[in-house]
């Protein structure tokens, strides 16, 4: 803003002048036809902008716009839940399964491994999801209506239709503190995996 007069002109255009200032500006315009012309032109431009330009625009595919946001919010919520999920409930070994070592030994050829915990209620929860290949993003969500758990893998190269994706359905686990092992059981109470740690504190599969 160059001069106090410029500021006065700007505030006149914006209707921000006090009565006194307004009278002063009117007097200035009366004495200076060039100022009046400029002020009138600027006012006409302002009026044209209001007439011809709209700020708001109709969002293309508005319903999809909303549903996309809801989907992304759900993703955020799932990520938060995973981040805050108490590992203690699973005696810590679920976090082992997120580490590369466990999967490297357990299922080296498998692109993605996941641990599913079937609880008393009839829904299935994916508690742990891990992709050994850092380029692959793995997500899972459960759709209660469809009673289905969907695994989404981004970044996979196309895989043959008969490729087996391994998962283990864990019903519960038991820790053996003296031996430092954790055994995972299926619904029938059969042992699925015995996990332990090696000398570097890395989880390994002791037996299957």
């Amino acid at each position: 803003m160059k001069t106090p007069d410029d500021q006065l002109l700007a505030r006149w255009l914006d209707g921000e002048l006090s009565e006194q200032e307004s009278a002063r500006f009117e007097a200035m315009m009366a004495a200076d036809p060039a100022l009046r012309e400029e002020a009138e032109t600027l006012r006409a431009i302002s009026a044209s902008i209001r007439e011809h330009v709209s700020f708001e625009r109709e969002v293309p595919h508005a319903d999809f716009f909303n549903s996309q946001i809801q989907e992304r919010i759900a993703e955020v919520q799932r990520a938060d839940e995973r981040a805050h999920a108490p590992a203690a409930s699973a005696s810590g070994w679920f976090s082992w399964l997120r580490t590369p070592w466990a999967l490297a030994s357990a299922a080296a050829a498998v692109a993605v491994a996941f641990v599913v915990l079937r609880q008393e209620r009839p829904s299935t929860q994916v508690l742990s999801l891990y992709a050994p290949n850092p380029n692959i993003q793995a997500n899972a969500y459960h759709n209660a209506d469809a009673d289905a758990t969907v695994l989404m893998l981004n970044g996979l190269e196309s895989i043959p239709a008969d490729h087996e994706i391994a998962g283990i359905n864990v019903h519960h686990s038991e820790m053996e503190p003296q031996q430092g092992t954790t055994t995972l059981f299926n619904e029938q109470g059969n042992a699925l995996l015995v996990m332990t740690k090696n000398g570097w504190d890395q989880p390994v599969v002791a037996s299957r």
């Binding site: 709209s54 708001e56 716009f65 909303n66 946001i69 919010i73």
Partner: peptide, 20 residues
């Protein structure tokens, strides 16, 4: 955490936000 309430806010302001 009510995502539906947020959805209503989205509907109210999406035209302005998109316009901006």
């Amino acid at each position: 955490g009510n995502a539906q309430a947020f959805d209503l806010l989205v509907t109210r302001y999406r035209g302005k936000v998109y316009g901006m």
